[in-house]
């Protein structure tokens, strides 16, 4: 019959009109600034630099300015200048550090390739999305001071991933310490026996990208509401 399809359609819209008043499956809108949906753990937006010490973020960056991310970044939004001198990292090992580390968030497309290629777990994806600003140029160019965020923040936004990273780093550090101990023991043995015995290389965690010497991670802490 002519018009039956139209009447059927009108019935559907009427059902939705009524349903939107009582059925949450039909009324899916959230009133954004007041209500917020929970961000999924995997949500990513813009990178940040992980710092081990919350009280001195710039001084305790994990980044050793190897510049891999700078090379791999597809839109080339990262700019790094390596330091001239070395300074001890969290574990006390002498490392270079980024004298300049800038990310242009107006160029960054949050693809997280920098995170995937970083061998030091030094750069991770943030979850900020409200960084709109009327300043077009300078306000969107983040320097290392703005990028550095403590590990506790990372544990808070990506708990599962951060726990894995922390465990891996702790294992690496332990292996490093054991290696150092073994080396020391070997050196002692060598000194005692006056015979050289080079220590075997320590094994690293299976799934980790090669991260030979990043000791000095703090043990995982419960997320704090910073």
């Amino acid at each position: 019959m002519l018009g039956s399809g139209i009447i059927q359609g009108l019935a559907v819209t009427a059902k939705n009109l009524v349903g939107s008043f009582h059925d949450p499956a039909r009324f899916t809108t959230t009133q954004y600034p007041e209500e917020r949906t929970k961000l999924p753990e995997n949500y990513r937006n813009f990178p940040f630099l992980v710092a081990d010490a919350a009280n001195d973020p710039i001084g305790s960056l994990r980044c050793v300015a190897c510049q891999i991310c700078e090379k791999e970044c597809p839109p080339q939004c990262i700019y790094i200048e390596k330091s001239k001198d070395k300074k001890p990292d969290a574990a006390g090992k002498q490392q270079f550090f980024p004298a300049v580390f800038d990310i242009d968030t107006s160029v960054c497309m949050s693809c997280q390739i920098c995170v995937e290629v970083c061998p030091f777990d030094a750069i991770k994806m943030d979850q900020v999305f409200e960084i709109a600003t009327p300043e077009r140029f300078n306000a969107l160019l983040l320097d290392r001071g703005q990028l550095a965020k403590p590990n506790t923040y990372y544990q808070q936004i990506h708990p599962t991933e951060a726990a894995e990273v922390d465990a891996r780093l702790a294992a690496d550090r332990k292996a490093g310490e054991e290696k150092a101990k073994a080396a020391a023991a070997a050196a002692a043995a060598k000194a005692a026996a006056a015979k050289a015995a080079p220590a075997a290389p320590a094994s690293t965690a299976p799934s980790a990208p090669k991260s030979p010497a990043v000791p000095g991670t703090e043990a995982p802490k419960p997320p704090t509401t910073a």
Binding site: G5, I6, Q8
Partner: peptide, 8 residues
């Protein structure tokens, strides 16, 4: 139901 059978 909303639209496929719609004559228009």
């Amino acid at each position: 139901a909303l639209i496929t059978g719609n004559e228009i």
